[in-house]
């Protein structure tokens, strides 16, 4: 909307008000992040990141929680990626429109709207009790894998659709089968986009608390988890307990701030790397 008559007073005031709203939103986010970081910054140290907690969480570090969250992220993407990418390949490369594809799309959209705590219930019913994994890293990782699945599918689907039709046709004209065309031409071209989706799923897995509450996370354990069937500590749950359930909430408040800072830093770091991958792809496509 450009050019034309000079702006009226009403227009100037109205648009200025919208601008103020946008400014408010920016201020809000800066204040949120700034408050958490300024409260936790001075507690952060190398020891805090690499040592286990001591003295009832008042001293020491949060390494076991960081470790648990990282393992959980790995399990989440290991379980969600193959299925998610395969589903996206079906939808883009093989499926023909019809009731079946509509049903699949409807399911994926609804899966993305299922509350995370309901995924937690499902994890308890299926992985913890049904399949007998017990409360464990494995049960939590699979639960989070299901949670991130719709996002992985959608991101992969968009990446595959951005690959030009000629990439497929070229391979097919040379005698490749559909799968050979996908494997040698389509997937490599779509890889950065697929990767972005996977990384965003990782960020989501790192921050989720409700799905792991009953599927294996624990507030404190003396040693590191030795196998995938062990319980574990995780950053978001650690923050939850430190700020609501600890017997001396005031004393551990600085540790809670620092844990929140580490969690926020981790999530923003992972999100940022997704943004960098995306920006690189866009830049390359423009060349």
């Amino acid at each position: 909307m450009s050019g034309g008559a000079a702006p009226t007073t009403r227009e100037r005031f109205g648009f200025a008000a919208l601008g103020v709203c946008a400014g408010l939103l920016v201020l809000l986010v800066v204040a949120l992040v700034g408050y958490v970081v300024s409260g936790g910054w001075h507690v952060l140290s190398w020891q805090f990141l690499t040592q286990p907690p001591t003295n009832g969480m008042r001293d020491g570090g949060i390494w076991p929680a960081i470790f648990g969250t990282i393992v959980l992220m790995a399990l989440t993407s290991l379980s969600a990626t193959p299925l998610g990418v395969a589903c996206a390949i079906y939808l883009v490369e093989y499926a023909r429109e019809g009731w079946f594809v509509r049903l699949i799309r409807l399911s994926i959209r609804n899966l993305s709207g299922v509350p995370s705590v309901v995924y937690g219930l499902f994890g308890v019913g299926l992985f913890v009790n049904g399949l007998g994994f017990g409360p464990s890293l494995l049960a939590s990782g699979l639960t989070l894998g299901l949670l991130t699945l719709p996002w992985t599918i959608t991101a992969s689907e968009e990446a595959l659709r951005r690959v030009p039709r000629s990439y497929r046709d070229g391979a097919l004209a040379l005698g490749a089968t559909p799968w050979e065309a996908i494997w040698t031409n389509v997937l490599p071209a779509a890889l950065p986009g697929v990767l972005t989706g996977i990384i965003l799923g990782l960020a989501r897995a790192a921050g989720e608390t409700a799905p792991i509450l009953f599927t294996g996370v624990t507030f404190s354990r003396p040693d590191m988890p030795a196998s995938l069937l062990d319980t574990y500590m995780a950053l978001p749950y650690h923050l939850y307990i430190l700020s609501t359930q600890h017997q001396d909430i005031v004393a551990v408040r600085p540790v809670a701030f620092a844990t929140a800072t580490v969690l926020l830093g981790l999530v923003l770091l992972v999100n940022g790397s997704a943004a960098i991958v995306r920006a690189r792809v866009r830049a390359r496509q423009l060349e």
Partner: peptide
């Protein structure tokens, strides 16, 4: 991207 547990903490 801010985890809900951090918002709850705020």
């Amino acid at each position: 991207a801010i985890p809900s547990v951090v918002i709850g903490f705020i």
